[in-house]
Amino acid sequence: MDSGRLLVLTWLLASLVFMTSYSGILTSMLTVPRVTIPIDSISDLVAQSDLSWRLEAGTMMFNILGDSKKKNYNLALSEMDGTIYTCWATREELVAGEFAAICDYTSQRKVMSWDFRNTGQCHLYITRETIYFSQLSMLFRINSSYLEGANKIVQRLVEGGLLDHWLSQDLRYATQCLRPPTSDPYLLKQSLPFEALLGPAFMVFAGKL
């Protein structure tokens, strides 16, 4: 009868839509696994208690966090677990996961480059939240006779691209560790749990009834 044909056609179309949807979900799960970053901002840092953090002693970070109107920044300063000399000096402790450190971006990349060059793995990551950007500069005494000559040399290095070239050479191994976690080939090889296949299996079974 026409009503029976309409019912079967509707069921077939609904099954096609459901199967296409589940196929797309499975494809996305296989190609782009979901990776959760536990600490990706100052808010995440102060909200957890499993990992302590430290600041570089004598840096402007104390003023930035202390003078900020953001409560999380103030907590990052008041609840820190002491200070360190520099991030580079404590790079082995950072790689071992003993604590986190709030450092300038260049120092972070340098520690990453050292870690990947020596181990071939990425044990560190940089949060997406940026507190401040650091600049490479030279410090001279007021009215120093060396200042004018140094400015000319630095200007030539910058305009000639030598400064960026030397910096990229020193930090070239950090590029691998700055890639997003979803690009890690190890994560792409992870198998799906059995529960993830129950939905498509049920739809296939129901469609054959």
Rank of each mutant, 00 (worst) to 15 (best):
L147N: 05
M138L: 15
S134L: 14
N63K: 14
A76M: 09
G66K: 04
G97A: 01
S145N: 05
M112C: 02
G120I: 00
N151I: 09
D67S: 06
Y105F: 11
N151S: 13
E98W: 07
Y125I: 02
A150M: 04
Q135Y: 13
L77K: 07
V158Y: 03
W166Q: 02
L136I: 14
C122F: 03
N143F: 14
E159H: 12
G66N: 02
T130H: 08
F116H: 08
L147P: 02
G120E: 00
E93K: 15
I84Q: 02
T90M: 14
C87V: 07
W88H: 12
K152V: 09
T119E: 00
D104I: 11
I84G: 05
V111H: 08
R128C: 02
T86E: 02
I84E: 13
S134C: 10
E93A: 15
S113H: 01
S134T: 13
Q108S: 14
Q108G: 15
L75F: 03
A100E: 00
E98P: 00
V154D: 07
F99W: 08
E98V: 06
W88K: 10
G149E: 11
Q108L: 14
Q135T: 15
R109K: 15
W166Y: 11
Y105C: 10
S168P: 00
I142A: 08
Y146T: 06
S168Y: 05
V158Q: 07
F99Q: 06
A89C: 07
Q108N: 13
T119L: 00
K69V: 15
M112H: 01
W114A: 00
D115G: 01
S107F: 01
Y85H: 04
K110N: 08
F99A: 05
R91C: 04
I131Y: 10
C87R: 00
G82E: 04
H123E: 04
F99P: 07
N143A: 09
L163I: 03
N74F: 09
S68F: 01
G82I: 07
E148W: 06
Y132K: 06
S107W: 02
N118V: 13
T86G: 03
T86I: 05
K152Q: 15
T83Y: 10
N63C: 12
E148F: 07
A100Q: 01
F99S: 05
Y105S: 13
A76G: 14
R91S: 07
L157W: 13
N72P: 07
Y146V: 01
G66I: 01
H165V: 05
E92S: 12
L136T: 11
E148D: 15
W166S: 04
R128G: 13
W88I: 13
Y132M: 08
G149K: 05
A89D: 13
T86L: 03
T86A: 07
D115P: 04
S78L: 09
A100G: 07
N143S: 09
E93G: 11
I153H: 04
Q135R: 13
I131M: 13
T86K: 04
L94G: 06
